[in-house]
Design a protein around this nucleic acid. Structure first.
Lengths: 198, 198
DNA sequence: CCATGTTTTGTCAATAGTGACAGAACGCAC
DNA sequence: GTGCGTTCTGTCACTATTGACAAAACATGG
């Protein structure tokens, strides 16, 4: 239901909602902000809010979604013969991280965010990520139909590896971006030639 | 919030809810049945309904959850030295499928179930599945702490492979249980020694 | 400017899902 | 059986989400 921007008008509405949400989230916390407040601040009806963002949390993670698009393009731009693992790694690490935003989100998460919702959203992100990789592989395959299983398996495993890295990172006491990168890199390369644990 | 059965009393309530839900789902369809109706039929309040089943759809997939417990036990019972892929495969295929129930669900799904909710639930199931495998691997590891990444990566990839098999199966015209088994088996063995697509 | 088809919003009315708090039911020691 | 701590339920109130339908805002050819 979270439709992509169609007209300039709707893009203005989305922007207004994003702004309003950011202000509220930072000022009073995510769970303490109601969708209704955001809609009111943005000067639109609650229903319109939900037309643009499937849920309150979609809005919180709006950047992730934008990032996904970026990721898809980055993947498409990788050289033809390159190994998937390489391509994915390159695409991830070339991402123009807004360190400040990441930090902000990380700190929010610790305190006031319902863990269940985060977990649910991370699963969704992983799923989208896997789809992106799958499409990338399919685009390069001579016969995507015939290779459907191999492609799907590979895509999902690549995504699984990256998010496994994240999971391990999240459970650590100290969490530096460098560590996260290292974990994801290790996870990815470790599956290319077989499962790390047999 | 979907707490496990604690007392005989609560188990009776759960059972009543399950029965009521099954009747309604079959009679008038899933999306056309409200949580309130189910609660009323079972003679409990709506709130109690949500205490036992996190959502209306958890109830629909209650069997899957029971299956997960079964799966965990089956994994634990596998011989110590066995390769993960073997153990998981054995555990999956030893499962006492209620073919009739599976068929019933499959037919429901096709028609009256909101695809988004199914997808969301499948993601959750995959996540639980991965956790089960992770715990299994951790139990067998000499030093789970040190191997955290390898274990997490492996567990998630194993789950990814199985569900990749399901995904491909779902997209087929003809869907036989034998095909599903074959796809999952192929998917699993294909990742043990490296990604099927590099 | 006007008529008309499309896109975006708003309104209305339900259902879904949760937190907080109080009462009821249960299990157990005495 | 009584007292008491634990578990399960009901009630209340509120936020989250969505479907259906109508009004408003836009874009466009004439």
């Amino acid at each position: 239901m979270a439709s992509p921007p169609q007209t300039a008008r709707s893009e203005r509405t989305r922007e207004a909602l994003r702004r309003a949400a950011t202000v509220r989230f930072l000022a009073q916390g995510v769970e303490e902000t109601s969708a209704e407040q955001i809609a009111a601040d943005a000067g639109v009806s609650l229903r319109t809010f939900y037309r643009h963002f499937g849920s309150k949390h979609d809005l919180l993670f709006a950047d992730y979604d934008a990032g996904l698009q970026w990721f898809r393009r980055a993947l498409a731009d990788r050289p033809p013969g390159e190994r998937v693992v390489e391509s994915v790694q390159a695409a991830i690490f070339a991402f123009p991280y807004d360190v400040e935003a990441v930090t902000q989100i990380a700190s929010l998460r610790a305190d006031e965010l319902d863990p269940r919702r985060i977990v649910r959203h991370m699963r969704e992100v992983q799923s989208d990520f896997a789809h992106a990789v799958r499409d990338h592989l399919a685009r390069r395959s001579d016969d995507p139909e015939a290779e459907a299983l191999a492609i799907t398996v590979t895509a999902r495993c690549v995504a699984a590896a990256v998010f496994a890295g994240m999971e391990v990172w999240m459970q650590r006491e100290e969490r530096s971006l460098a560590d996260l990168a290292e974990l994801c890199r290790t996870a990815l390369t470790s599956i290319e030639n077989g499962l790390p644990v047999r």
